[in-house]
């Protein structure tokens, strides 16, 4: 991630980003971390990621199930629920409104002002 993106922005958007990742396809913790890193979120540590996943599950937005790994220990797979999908849709809409408002207020780095 770019050095000048504050970590509290990441903290704020992480639950939504994790939910969006799981909503793409049923997946497990390490794969979520890899997906987030590929998307430019930097390396999200297990100690940050699993509490978020568990919180989303407690809130009924995700479900989880342990599956046998291939030649390794089991993995906990997460899948989005209908409630989770609906929550993501509403949050994504709110997020876009929010970032548009912020963008309209902030100076444009590409302008000469």
């Amino acid at each position: 991630m770019d050095a000048d993106i504050p970590s509290d922005w990441l903290r704020a958007v992480l639950p939504m980003a994790v939910l969006a990742t799981v909503a793409e396809a049923e997946t497990y913790g390490y794969a979520v971390a890899q997906r987030l890193q590929a998307a430019g979120f930097g390396a999200v540590k297990g100690g940050t990621l699993y509490p978020v996943l568990n919180r989303l599950e407690t809130d009924g937005l995700l479900t989880s199930a342990w599956r046998e790994g291939v030649g390794g220990p089991g993995r906990k797979f997460f899948a989005v629920t209908d409630t989770g999908r609906e929550h993501l849709r509403r949050r994504a809409a709110a997020w876009h409104t929010f970032t548009e408002r912020a963008a309209s207020l902030l100076p444009d780095p590409r302008s000469t002002r």
């Binding site: 297990g46 100690g47 568990n54 342990w66 993995r75 906990k76």
Partner: peptide, 27 residues
């Protein structure tokens, strides 16, 4: 659940558990 998550995760990443999850007390 929490212990299994740690074990499964570090099995995938090959990380030291303290590096990945922070000291056990804090986690």
């Amino acid at each position: 659940e929490a212990v299994a998550e740690v074990e499964s995760h570090v099995a995938d990443t090959g990380e030291d558990p303290v590096a990945a999850f922070g000291p056990a007390k804090e986690y």
